[in-house]
Amino acid sequence: MASLEVRDITVRFGGNVALDQVSIATEPGSITGLIGPNGAGKTTLFNVITGLLPPSSGRVILDGRDITGLSPTKRARLGLARTFQRLELFSLLTVRENIRVAADIRRGYSKDKDNPAEIVEAIIDRVGLREIAEERVDRLPTGQCRLVELGRSLATKPKVLLLDEPASGQDETETELFATLLQQLAADGTVVLLVEHDVQLVMNICKSVHVLDFGQIIAVGSPSEIQTNEAVLAAYLGTGATTP
């Protein structure tokens, strides 16, 4: 079973501390939620985990291996995949081509030489993109773009999947479908770390939830624990929220 662990990650930008000794341990085969107010450092943490941003201190551990010094490319090849809050799709390509790029890249470095075209078709069916496979992605609504990005990251057959606000821009049906999909992925053994504004979604599908505020983890627990946690309420609602 795969596992991802973040130990004591600190990130400083100039004098500001964006992340302060953040530690997260994920459970294999389950979805871990990460929530927090704007500017709490969620996307920064994803950038650190995927290697796009070097941390000032701390370690990222994938399957027991310290990957802190590795490039984003090497990390991806070890089975780390992500989606982006600000969609980073290949806008000049079609849906199928977007996923194909990822499948081709995987074939280039991986030992198993599955036919990339077959992988792509399987993912298109799994994510439900068959009808729009030939569309150029820059003509799609955001909700579908989120699915394409998920499909693209699945083409690398990730062990650990980081999702940055995957439900934003999706309508309710899409979000429901998405939730089911994530639960299946987790059941298949993929580690899923989910950053999401749609608190309802997080509460519904996550086994444990971490709350980030001012770059610090202020609470960890099950969804129901989090919903009644005083520190969380304070972070979201202000200092005096619990004593109205």
């Binding site: 780390l80 992500r82 290949f90 081709d104 890249i105």
Partner: peptide
């Protein structure tokens, strides 16, 4: 495809293992 992808987002390409 790979070149067009890279032009659009190097960050995405890197996180896909390119």
């Amino acid at each position: 495809r790979r070149l067009l992808a890279m032009k659009d987002s190097e960050a995405a390409c890197a996180t896909l293992g390119l």
